[in-house]
């Protein structure tokens, strides 16, 4: 490889070509404009925006977050502006950026998911969607659809029939066998999988003897969950043919490279954005430096090279 030449970081997620494998995880990057002053947004591989519902959702009562060892619990409850405000107020800015915008969607019923998918289908400026069947913090929707293989199949199938946009399905770690769900979601027509969403957890204030979150339980994220995410990604890539996107506790390039070597086609950076707003671009630079150092000219040649 020519020393001056940059390694090829391109990856394909279904029909979507990414210039590098680093995406922002839904719910940790707002609608990107929040970070405009802090990070060069155009260098990011893809932007996945905050989970969207048909109508605006108020979210859960506070307190909504608490720090835990090497991570945090959140129970935001998918507060979002709703489809219409997203299109008129948030999407125009996203359209000015070069990375593809992927919209994370959720609903309280199969019909809601399907309608959202169908209405997004014709909106200009959206490269694809990520279907959230794994949020642990809402009573209806989210994990209710992602907890068993059959309901996951039916939901993804219903969404698939209403959209031609590339569809990623985000899976939950709070299940007995993620591979059974992954296989069904693939069969139902998903173009890619992303995993893991947060792990259900809890924290208690010993002085008041009350939960630290108003929602009682929340989703654990951050470096504390990375080994679990990595194990589940590794298990999943062995049983599906569609691309798997690794997410969970990625803080730096080394973390991201572990997922790529395990077989993830791309990665999502989530909680790290809160700690280091430039986490995504730092990781892109670190992956590139690793490839140069190891004389690997294409990232694709590194993906799934785990030996065991």
């Amino acid at each position: 490889m020519n020393k001056k030449q940059h390694p090829d970081l391109c990856v394909d997620i279904g029909k979507i070509r990414l210039k590098n494998p680093v995406m922002t995880a839904s719910g940790t990057f707002g609608y990107a404009s929040e970070y405009a002053q802090l990070v060069d947004l155009n260098r990011i591989g893809a932007i996945i925006v905050k989970g969207l519902s048909l109508v605006p959702a108020p979210g859960n009562p506070p307190p909504r977050t608490v720090e835990t060892p090497c991570g945090m619990l959140n129970a935001i409850g998918l507060e979002n502006v709703g489809l219409e405000a997203f299109i008129t107020e948030k999407l125009p800015f996203l359209k000015t950026l070069s990375p593809p915008t992927l919209v994370n969607i959720y609903g309280q019923s199969t019909d809601e998911y399907a309608e959202l998918a169908s209405r997004l289908n014709d909106v200009e400026g959206i490269a694809g969607m990520e279907v959230n069947i794994s949020c642990p913090n809402v009573k209806k929707g989210g994990i209710a659809f992602g907890a068993d293989p059959k309901s996951a199949y039916h939901l993804v199938n219903a969404v698939r029939s209403r959209t031609s946009l590339p569809m990623i399905v985000k899976l939950s770690p709070n299940v007995t066998d993620v591979t059974a769900i992954a296989r069904n979601v693939e069969e139902a027509g998903a173009d890619a999988l992303s995993l893991i969403n947060t792990i259900t957890g809890m924290a208690i204030d010993i002085d008041t003897r009350r939960p630290k979150l108003a929602n009682i339980t929340g989703g654990l994220s951050g470096p504390a969950i990375k080994p679990i995410a990595l194990r589940m990604v590794w298990q999943t890539v062995q049983c599906v043919k569609i691309p798997v996107i690794g997410v969970g506790g990625i803080m730096n390039a080394k973390d991201a490279l572990e997922f790529l070597i395990a077989g993830a086609t791309a990665v999502q950076v989530g909680t790290a954005n809160f700690v280091n707003p430039r986490a995504t671009t730092d990781i892109i630079e670190g992956i590139e430096a690793f490839l140069v150092e190891n004389k690997i000219s294409r990232l694709a040649d590194l993906i799934g090279t785990l030996e065991w």
Binding site: G27, T28, F29, G30, E34, Y35, L38, K50, G59, N60, P61, P62, P63, R64, T65, V66, M72, N74, I76, E79, T271, N273, F274, P277
Partner: peptide, 14 residues
């Protein structure tokens, strides 16, 4: 309030 991001992304400080 407790908050994670400080810039309106996490929506933790409701």
């Amino acid at each position: 309030s407790r908050m994670a991001c400080g810039i309106g992304a996490c929506l933790g400080c409701a």
